[in-house]
Every structure is written in C-alpha cells, then in structure tokens.
C-alpha cells in the first residue's frame, strides 16, 4: 500500500513539473511564433506583388486584407459579410445578400492592424451581429495600393492535390491578370508532384488574363526550351537573356496552355483548376462588393 502511494506521488510530481515547464515554454514562444507566421505570410504577399527579397517597397505601399464571412441570420437568411478597412483606421462589416444587393453596413471596433488577427476578428464580427446569427469565416483576399492607386490583389485558395490539399496564393494586377502563384502548403511526392513549387511551373501562369484562364488546359507536351529559360530567372541569367528578351519570349508563349510536369499530371491539373477557380470566384465577388460599396457610399481605405 505504501509503495503504491509512493509511486503515485512521484508520478504525479513528474507530471505536474512537466506540465509547468511546458506551460512556461509555451507562453514564452507563443508570441514570437505568431509574429514569425505573420511575417512569413507578409513576405509571400510582398514577393508575389514583386517586392520580394532585397527589393525595396515603394513609399505609401499598403496591403489591406478583406475577410469574407458566411452569415446565417434566421431573419434575413444567408448573407455574405465582408470586413473592409475604411479610412482613418476604421473597419466595417458590409453585408450582401445572395442576389448581390447590399443588406446593411455595420461599423466594427477593429483597427486596421487587427484585421490580420483572425481569432480577434471572428469574435468582433460575432458581437456585431444579432444574437441568433452565426458567422463562419470563409476566406481572405488582399488589396494592394500604391499612393492611393490600385496596384494589385493577392488571393488565397485551396485545391485538392494528389494526396492532400494544396494551399496557394495567387496575385493579380489591377486588370486581374495573373502576376504570380505561390504554393504555401502541400504534401505532394518529393521529386514528382512537389515540383509544382518550382519556377518553371509556377511562372507559366504569369500573364494569363481572365479570359485566358477560363479556357486554360493542361497539356502533356514538353516545355519549349526557350520558354524554360525565360521562366526560370537563374537559367535566364546563365543564357544571358536580357530582360526585354525574356519579356518577348514570355509574350510569345503567353497563350500556351500549361505544360504538365513529367510524372505529375494530376498535381499540375490540380494547381491549374485551383488558380482558375480562385480567380474566377474572386472576380465575381469583387465586382459585387465594389458595387455595394459604391451604392452605400463607403469611404474605403483602398
């Protein structure tokens, strides 16, 4: 009996001290971990917009996130809510019904910097809504401005890959032409499907307009060698291609379909449909949101 007690006590001690140490480490690392994750996302967005490593961001360059919520209101039915940044660090929840008509604007307490904090924002949206309504987070896109002029958009999207979901980001310029694709998270086979992260695949999407994207297919032809040189910056440097020459080759091939990766047609197709869906949905939604903002005469930040 005495032994059991002794064993129990010592095991409990081990457990409690382990839990205490873990708690301490957790609270210490929580802050920096979140900061790093945020910074990483920021870096992806910046490099997609063309201000990556080493390239200075111009003055007055601002990126605003816009969060989308699906609101189930027992009285008004299903609504779509967008949290948009307003001038002077104000924010508002713009509600739009399924037919695309605006259904009211609610000012939020959140400041601009709170827009990146998803947990905080979720709770703020919830308190702003009527008590029996629910809001589920549905996605984010980013709007970039330079000196008050629209510069481009960055969209988040997911698609079913070969094994698991592929999370990606697509950047568009002001005319909704693709300027870049980044694979944020994927678990494709190394050496095969994992090549979707490579420049020679991702950069094939650059320059595709909305109409081109809609008709885009994946072909199993080999990638033309001049196009390959133009797609990968390191190869272009080796081949001694001048920037305007690269531009010329890319322009020549811009109407081409996507050349599938060898041995990974499914992954290539997954990324292509992912880009297509993300962009086409965004173009529809953004048009609706813009007209709603105009009709409600909102002073939005971008």
């Amino acid at each position: 009996m005495k032994e059991i007690l002794k064993i129990t006590v010592s095991l409990t001690c081990v457990c409690i001290s382990a839990a205490l140490i873990l708690g301490a480490v957790y609270t210490q690392t929580f802050e920096p971990r979140q900061r790093i994750e945020k910074k990483e996302k920021q870096e992806i967005i910046n490099s997609l917009l063309g201000f990556g490593h080493g390239k200075e961001r111009p003055k007055d360059f601002e990126v605003y996130p816009v969060n989308r919520y699906v609101i189930e209101d027992p009285e008004a039915g299903t609504l779509i809510g967008y949290v948009v940044p307003l001038k002077e660090s104000q924010t508002a929840l713009v509600r739009i019904d399924l037919a695309g008509k605006p259904a009211g604007v609610i000012p939020l307490k959140a400041k601009h910097e709170d827009l990146l904090d998803k947990l905080l924002l979720n709770s703020m949206v919830k308190t702003a809504l009527p008590k029996n309504a629910t809001a589920t987070f549905a996605g984010t896109f980013y709007v970039a401005d330079i000196q008050g002029k629209r510069y481009g958009y960055v969209l988040e999207g997911t698609t079913q890959g070969f094994k698991t979901f592929i999370n990606m980001m697509v950047s568009l310029d002001a005319k909704l032409t693709v300027t870049g694709v980044a694979i944020v998270k994927s678990e494709e086979d190394p050496g095969l499907g994992d090549e979707i992260k490579q420049d020679f695949f991702k950069n094939q999407f650059v320059g595709k307009t909305l109409e081109m994207l809609a008709a885009l297919k994946v072909v199993k032809d080999p990638l033309p060698s001049d196009y390959l040189d133009a797609l990968v910056p390191a190869r272009a440097k080796k081949a001694g291609l001048a920037p305007d020459k690269i531009e010329e080759i890319r322009k020549k091939h811009v109407k081409d379909d996507i050349y599938a990766l060898t041995g990974a047609t499914i992954s290539s197709r997954a990324v292509t449909t992912g880009v297509q869906n993300t962009v086409s949905k965004f173009s529809k939604r953004f048009g609706i949101l813009n007209s709603a903002i105009e009709r409600k005469n909102l002073q939005i930040a971008f």
Binding site: I80, L98, G100, A138, K281, K284, R285, I288
Partner: peptide, 13 residues
C-alpha cells in the same frame, strides 16, 4: 431557371 445550385461553402457563387 427553377434550379439554383451552389457549393455549400460558397452560397454566393
């Protein structure tokens, strides 16, 4: 015209 189809997560599309 009598049918309206959408993905459950995207009721607006």
């Amino acid at each position: 015209a009598n049918y309206k189809v959408f993905e459950k997560t995207d009721p607006d599309i």
